[in-house]
Design a protein around this nucleic acid. Structure first.
Length: 424
RNA sequence: GGAGAGUUGGCAGAGUGGUAAUGCAACGGACUCGAAAUCCGUCGAACCGCCUUAUAAGCGGCGCGCAGGUUCAAUUCCUGUACUCUCCUCCA
């Protein structure tokens, strides 16, 4: 949620910034108009409530003195009716106002590249050497199925498209990857968490998935529970509606969880393999920080994600997303894309975002600074990393001509010494 | 799934139609070389509106889990609902 005072005091700035995120200026005008109406009604009803409070006191005194208060009571009956009518009107205005406000995306940071889509994103750095193959590299699903470690067919029978069974060494590899990631993040100061995998609507609202992105998630029938689309939701809502002592900041949390996504609207894209699933494992990093440090913290978090790829010796590049390509809550996002040989392209494996106070305002996550003043924290989240896509990248980048896959050195201890996955 | 109890400030905890007790903590001051103890004083944190260039102050609203209702007036009465706890039942 944006700060209405900032929009009110500087509507042109708001229109300009949000125009880069496909928000029409009329939408800002509509919000401002509703805000105006809201405050107008608020003043009217508050004035009447003040009057009612005063006269109610007088009635109370009169009753105590056994005097007649019929006149005032009659008068207040009328005032009460007016208040009720105004409050109904106010509630209606407030409803549309809040709904419109909660659908406006975050302001982009001034340094973000401006543009409507991914073609305008900025490549910040390229890291690692792309391997030259003496043979035609296979797609990871071919490799995985041939080795008997990925079973999409039976997953389709049991669950449907976009699900997978990891079998044997495949399951072991997945587990090695996320255990390695969690251990790394622990060394970097993150506290490991196992959160709930289902959350209520207040939480989904707090991190910005609701109300706008309801169709992207799986919900439990007849209950206010949603399967988390990312661990960002339970991790960031952990301190929802709380005021943290300044000394507690920054807070670093990390968690391995499955992520559940309906992938509505992505029919036909990445239909094969591990890239786009309804359920996938992801190690997530979340930070709660003081506003003045949040961009430094974003750089650190991005490096924490990069470190995993560097240790796995997987080539990648880091891009800063264009304003039009960023997710709803982000002010700045660094995507890390890993090299996928079969597709001869980089694919997203991590997304690290600074949401500034956008989520904190929705979720009311604040801290008490040294002067005793209460401020909104800044929240950050980033994948460190998407586990399934990491496995896909390992299978493809580490494949051998005979169909076997070499295990990256840092994972060998996590594989209990196994250095290569070969056909049984 | 069944029965019962509860939800009030940072914490503890009264209040059962008419200004939300009290204690602890916190903050300011006195005492002190300094601190502790003691004494005096302040204090419903946050939120919203008005005022203000802005902040503070000031004024007002709001505020007793949440949402409705009754009433001149609701922490208090009524309805619904969420959550917590206890017992029973079930269960990894």
């Amino acid at each position: 949620m944006l700060d209405i005072k900032r929009i009110r005091n500087n509507p042109d700035e708001a229109k300009e910034k949000l125009a880069t995120r496909a928000v029409k200026p009329e939408e800002i005008d509509a919000v401002l108009e509703l805000d105006e109406k809201r405050r107008e009604l608020l003043q009217q009803t508050e004035q009447l409530k003040g009057q009612r409070n005063k006269v109610s006191d007088a009635i109370s005194v009169a009753k105590r003195n056994k005097e007649d208060a019929t006149a005032q009571i009659t008068e207040m009956r009328e005032v009460g009716a007016q208040i009720k009518a105004l409050d109904v009107e106010l509630a209606e205005v407030l409803d549309t106002y809040t709904d419109k406000m909660s659908r406006l995306p975050n302001f982009p940071h001034d340094t973000d590249p401006v543009g409507p889509d991914e073609n305008y994103s900025r490549e910040d750095r390229k890291v690692g050497d792309i391997r030259h193959f003496d043979f035609e590299p296979k797609a990871h699903w071919e490799i995985g199925e041939a080795l008997g470690i990925l079973d999409f067919k039976r997953a389709a029978k049991v669950s449907g498209a976009r699900f997978v069974y990891y079998m044997g060494m495949g399951a072991k590899l997945e587990r090695a990857v996320y255990n390695f990631m969690l251990d790394q993040h622990e060394l970097e100061g993150y506290e490991e968490v196992i959160p709930p995998y289902m959350v209520n609507s207040d939480s989904m609202y707090g991190t910005g998935q609701f109300p706008k992105f309801k169709e992207d998630v799986f919900q439990i029938k007849d209950q206010d529970l949603t399967l988390i689309p990312t661990a960002e939701v339970p991790l960031t809502n952990y301190y929802r509606d709380e005021v943290l002592p300044a000394a507690q900041l920054p807070v670093y949390l990390t968690a391995l969880t499955p992520s559940f996504r309906s992938e509505a609207g992505s029919a036909g894209r990445d239909t094969r393999g591990l890239i786009r699933m309804h359920q996938f494992n992801k190690v997530e990093m979340v930070k709660y920080v003081k506003p003045e440090t949040s961009y430094d913290e974003l750089e650190k978090m991005t490096h924490n994600a990069e470190n995993i790829l560097q240790q796995l010796k997987l080539p990648y590049h880091v891009i800063t997303l264009a304003t039009g390509d960023m997710s709803f809550t982000a002010a700045e996002t660094h995507d890390i894309e890993v090299w996928i040989p079969h597709q001869e392209t980089y694919r997203e494996i991590s997304s690290c975002s600074n949401c500034e106070d956008f989520q904190a305002r929705r979720a009311q996550i604040r801290y008490r600074d040294e002067d005793g003043k209460v401020n909104l924290v800044h929240t950050l989240n980033g994948s460190g990393l998407a586990v399934g896509r990491t496995v896909a990248a390992i299978l493809e980048n580490y494949q051998n001509e005979d169909g076997s896959v070499t295990i990256p050195d840092v994972l060998v201890p996590y594989m209990r010494g196994v250095k290569k996955i070969e056909k049984k």
